[in-house]
Write a protein that binds this DNA or RNA. Structure first.
Lengths: 205, 205
DNA sequence: TAGATTGTTAATCGATTAACAATC
DNA sequence: TAGATTGTTAATCGATTAACAATC
């Protein structure tokens, strides 16, 4: 990534990519910034600014060419670069994520799952093996994995985090309703489903 | 909700609630704004400002009393108010969400699921019935439901959205990698898992 | 040409951070 | 008292919006 983009920009670029992918499926060739802005309820000049950051140029009166713009976003956000990750917690959410093919399409490769339930250990979900949590250090170090997805019950969230940190994980995608305590060199993304849903719903008086 | 709070504030308040819940489990009685700020990597004055918005008062030198603060956040964000919702798409993600007990704890009550796969229709998942998508208008209007959770394959996302809108849904929690086209009076929250994960990972050079 | 669109600068807006008096 | 903390105002920072010349 050339210069670090702001989080908001990355999220919007991802949404633009969804739109472009959809347009491409429909066989369209061009799209304009007001069209994108309208779909997302944002200002069209913001769309143009964002697109400028991925080094794509539009054409006056016509807009942006869909295929190259899509490729620019993919390149800038690193969709093509394979990012290995593991899932800790082979429960419902963990199982759903490993079957969520879109993750793979955007470059995230789930290598394995971990759980402490011995009835799950040894099984395969979507052709990925479930290991016992005690094997985590071995597997992570063998495969040099830096991204961990945490989908365990909240009661063991911190305990599992400590194990992940110990094993050398640097990015934790946290689906538990818990705030995790980690060293400074580990980055946590709190998915915070509850907070997102509540803020969407907060318009309701 | 007295005055509409900013989305960022709502998300932070939810994270504070996670922390308070954890502290309560540990039997703690007080917590200070620098302690909360440290856990979240934000400024302590921001924490105090947020807490002021839910009408809770701290004590100099001691901090905030955990139980009442937790209750204030619950009241302001409406955790206690039951919010009925339906899930459209009884696949892996939909099935995982209906089994995700934390949603219920924060006041979201999933009433039913809908799918077009006749092998799923009639079954129950976590004691909620799976209906055929054609029944949606009937069920929604019967139960006055305004929140829909969309976990269908992206190819049918817009089609299902149109059905939801037709049936009177006003809030859509969108888990598909698609931007949905809706009328002005319908609010969409794009969960955008991909964008969130990419922005967490974007530090990596 | 007239009109729609891009690219870009300036202005605005809102959110976060810094600072500090008041309190216990 | 000394020190830690709250509550709050002012300053800063960054993100979004408005405006408009250039382009086709």
């Amino acid at each position: 990534m050339p210069n670090k983009l702001a989080d908001n920009v990355i999220k919007r670029l991802t949404l633009y990519h969804f739109i472009l992918d959809d347009c491409e499926t429909q066989g369209l060739e061009y799209i304009s910034s007001p069209q994108i802005a309208e779909l997302l309820g944002i200002d069209d000049s913001l769309v143009r600014k964002d697109i400028k950051l991925v080094n794509n140029c539009g054409k006056c009166k016509i807009g942006y060419e869909i295929k190259p713009l899509k490729a620019c976003i993919e390149h800038t956000l690193g969709f093509r670069k394979i990012k290995d990750a593991v899932i800790v917690g082979a429960g419902n959410l963990g199982s759903a994520l490993i079957r969520y093919d879109d993750l793979e399409q955007y470059g995230f490769n789930i290598v394995a799952l971990f759980d402490n339930d011995s009835s799950k250990v040894g099984q395969s979900i979507n052709s990925r093996k479930v290991h016992h949590i005690s094997e985590i250090t071995k597997v992570l170090q063998e495969k040099q994995i830096r991204i961990g997805i945490l989908t365990v019950p909240k009661g063991v969230a911190q305990e599992c985090t400590d194990i992940l940190v110990q094993a050398g994980i640097k990015y934790i995608w946290n689906f538990t309703p818990r705030v995790l305590n980690v060293p400074n060199d580990v980055r946590v993304w709190n998915e915070n489903l509850i907070g997102n849903l509540l803020s969407a719903w907060a318009d309701e008086s």
